[in-house]
């Protein structure tokens, strides 16, 4: 464990903890509201944002955040009008923002290696500035989710009821989409555009299988998220593998273990609850 003395490794572990936590928390809502595809869509949209940053010379983090929030709102707007289904809205943005990214890269002179880093991520290469930025965003995201805990819970559980009771569901939905977008942005440098949605969906889906109440799902999801980030990171360093991919594989392995446990539990419970 001499590795832990290196600053880059400490940053990577800190980053893994932050991202593992915040993705897992957002993931709970994503899984319960069946928004996984939106997550993947926004993640892919970030490619356009990153390319825009490189081309304009502005810090890609900022262009990406703006770009992803705009995409999230665009998806929300299109599907709210109900002219088309939400998954179609995502599908349109998913590909078109990627296409925009590709076109923008074409405009740039020469090949940019950094861009590749955004696609697949490199948690060992995150800078101190990246970590600071992600801490700020994570605190903001977690703080807002803590504040709107019961509102987000009701909207996730029963949107119509939320409307009936007079909650500002539209604004809250946009806020939720925004939080998802910024969570994705702070994660792409570590796990990559292609893999970030797995870090959001998988730990929460694992937790869903084993939870009977919302808070325990939240806790388990964070536990799974952080555990897979740490285990994946350490494994990747030890075995000299791509870190983002290893983290996702560990999270997926955890998911199948949970799936197996939940299937066993169900089998044990069945005789007792034949009626329901």
């Amino acid at each position: 464990m001499d590795l832990l003395h290196y600053a880059f490794m400490q940053r990577a572990l800190l980053s893994a903890t932050i991202i593992g936590t915040v993705c897992a928390v957002i993931g709970v809502y994503v899984v319960l509201r069946s928004m996984s595809f939106i997550g993947a869509g926004i993640a892919h949209a970030s490619f356009g944002g990153v390319a825009l940053g490189f081309l304009s010379g502005i810090n890609p983090l900022f262009t990406t955040i703006l770009f992803c929030i705009a995409t999230a709102w665009g998806i929300a707007f299109l599907s709210e009008k109900r002219k088309i289904h939400e998954d179609s809205a995502v599908g349109i943005f998913f590909a078109s923002t990627m296409a925009l990214g590709i076109l923008l890269i074409g405009l740039m002179k020469g090949y940019n290696a950094d861009l590749f880093g955004y696609l697949f991520g490199n948690i060992l290469a995150v800078s101190a500035g990246d970590v600071t930025f992600s801490i700020i965003i994570a605190v903001l995201v977690l703080g807002l989710i803590w504040f709107f805990y019961k509102e987000f819970l009701l909207m996730t559980f029963d949107l119509e009821m939320a409307q009936v009771t007079g909650l500002p569901t539209r604004s809250l939905n946009l806020l939720m989409m925004t939080l998802m977008a910024v969570t994705i942005v702070i994660s792409i440098k570590s796990v990559g555009i292609v893999l970030v949605s797995a870090l959001i969906v998988t730990p929460a889906a694992s937790a869903y299988l084993l939870s009977s109440d919302f808070k325990s799902m939240m806790r388990l999801s964070v536990l799974f998220g952080v555990a897979s980030s740490w285990i994946g990171l350490l494994l990747s360093v030890w075995l000299n593998l791509a870190s983002g991919a290893t983290i996702v594989m560990v999270a997926t392995l955890l998911f199948f273990i949970c799936y197996f446990i939940s299937a066993q539990r169900k089998r044990l419970k069945q005789p007792e609850h034949a009626s329901s």
């Binding site: 319960l32 504040f147 709107f148 019961k150 509102e151 819970l153 009701l154 559980f157 029963d158 119509e160 009821m161 939320a162 009771t165 007079g166 909650l167 869903y208 939870s211 009977s212 109440d213 919302f214 325990s216 799902m217």
Partner: peptide, 27 residues
Amino acid sequence: QIDFNFPLQVHEMVLLGRCRKMGLGRR
């Protein structure tokens, strides 16, 4: 209209009935 597989206990669901009345962000 209700997803009964949602990880929620009865008392939590009942409390959500008062969501708006409790005030934004209030416990």
